[in-house]
Write a protein that binds this DNA or RNA. Structure first.
Lengths: 210, 210
DNA sequence: CCGACGAGTTAGTCACCGTTAACCACTCGC
DNA sequence: GCGAGTGGTTAACGGTGACTAACTCGTCGG
């Protein structure tokens, strides 16, 4: 077989399978889709999948570990770049937000799986995913607290978690009610997140310095 | 049997089952829990459940229809009360927010199921739940647009959806990272939601009138 | 040419799971 | 005290679903 680049339109069989599996898992849940369906989605049937993966679990594991790594690595890269460029906290935070929005809009299925099917992993994989998730959250908590020093650790942590909930809910509004075009949606999401985080701190009083 | 009030500590068998089923479904997914487990959770075993429910599907249906009705009815009541009292838009919106926060904090399992297992319902029930959800969203969209007239319909709708995502993510942070006490958490969530919605409109410019 | 190997196929196994059947115990109005 | 209903029980059935076995077919380096 001619080994093709991941970036081209022609995906390798493995990549096809992962993509379709992600879509199906997100639609109907891990337990809700059978291996025959996954096979059918890529034009082969049922047990043919076992030439590429050890089992159904292995597919889910690879998907979840993959998205967690990409999220964390993306966040780390952006954080480091902002620091290296000596950018102010606001810019570092904005960059993190934009990165997450990209994932939420471009990899909907994976974002959905990521916080929905984690418990179906076997202990070992789950631990790895959780570790990556924790590190990613840490990135955000640090960025948020740098931006809003008045926040307690706990306030920042809860705010970050719920803001992820906000961003990760984007995939669900794909169906009935249409979204605006990508750019408009991204800008709106960015404003919503910034607004939420800006409001996390002040328990009272109308005016609040940044 | 002595018919007991729902409000007392002693639950009827049906209510016990629904409660445990909700917990288990939220933890491991509808397809991930067997009827034997649900039975075991209430001290009876397996098929004994069929004295109380027509089947596993019926339990999920009753749970989802129930939470949808309670959400919508609660929202409608609050909206009407605010209108009857001639309260300003801000107060009506605040009341909706508080109502949803109560559900998110008190009925975690149901909130989780509500946006996660909807597709496992049979057509008829799913339609009913979706209708209630739509009506509930409408309540919010109206309240938000009354508060921020500058928002387009679409902006308001997307904002409301994602804010639900924010609030409904609360159950997930129960595990490792602890939450503050209920009152503090509720206040923080309220600020986050208000902050997000306040930021939905202005695409640019630092100062923005309410 | 040809053996090896990669990538499928179909048929079959085995476990599990939702549901039903058949049976039993307890309570309670008559 | 007794028939009926209510709320359980265990055993069995049928379907499904993940995975394995056994086999086939094309391609390609030597």
């Amino acid at each position: 077989m001619v080994r093709m680049s991941t970036r081209t339109a022609a995906l390798t069989r493995r990549e096809q399978i992962l993509r379709e599996a992600a879509r199906l898992f997100a639609e109907r849940g891990f337990h809700g889709v059978g291996v025959d369906e996954i096979g059918a989605a890529v034009g082969i049937s049922g047990p043919g999948l076992y030439r590429h993966f050890a089992g159904k679990d292995a597919m889910l594991a690879e998907l979840l570990v993959g998205i967690s790594e990409r999220l964390y690595e993306g966040g780390r890269r952006r954080t480091e770049e902002a620091a290296a460029a000596g950018l102010p906290p606001a810019d570092a935070l904005d960059s993190l937000i934009d990165g997450h929005i990209d994932f939420a809009l471009d990899d909907r299925a994976l974002i959905t799986l990521h916080d929905r099917e984690l418990d179906r992993l076997k202990e070992e994989d789950r631990k790895q995913v959780r570790k990556l998730q924790r590190q990613y959250v840490e990135l955000w908590v640090d960025a948020v607290r740098a931006m809003y020093p008045g926040l307690t650790e706990l306030e920042a942590r809860v705010s970050v978690h719920t803001v992820f909930g906000l961003l990760n809910s984007t995939p669900h509004l794909s169906g009935p009610s249409a979204m605006p075009d990508r750019e408009t949606t991204a800008a709106l999401l960015h404003r919503l997140v910034r607004g939420a985080l800006a409001a996390a701190g002040p328990a009272a009083g109308p005016g609040q310095s940044v």
